[in-house]
Amino acid sequence: MNYKNILGALVTTLLWAMPSLALAAENVEAASDGSAKWGYIGAALAVGSSTIGAGIAVGLVGAAAMGAISERPEVSGRALIFLGLAEGIAIYGLIIAIMILGKI
């Protein structure tokens, strides 16, 4: 169903946005010259877009996993592994954001 995918995407986005928000709050006082603001924007973009991508991916993979598992529960192990792969995409964005914020 369509809205389940969108819901999955939203939830994943929120979940992954929170740690980066926390990190960013800590680093606010660090630098004060102009280039810092681009760093912040870069970090935000990295996390934001990667979580959107992860959300879509998890939505799709999750829906397909639900379909397969509901028919045949033995498939659940492999299906969850695929789900983990999809979720990992968000981590890539988070790593970049952390690296950026660490340098500012």
Binding site: N5, L60, A64, M66
Partner: peptide
């Protein structure tokens, strides 16, 4: 189309495999 059919496609193929 992927969003629409992801669940149904996986389910149908699992049924098909039986």
């Amino acid at each position: 189309a992927a969003l629409k059919y992801s669940y149904l496609n996986a389910k149908t193929r699992t049924m098909h495999a039986r």
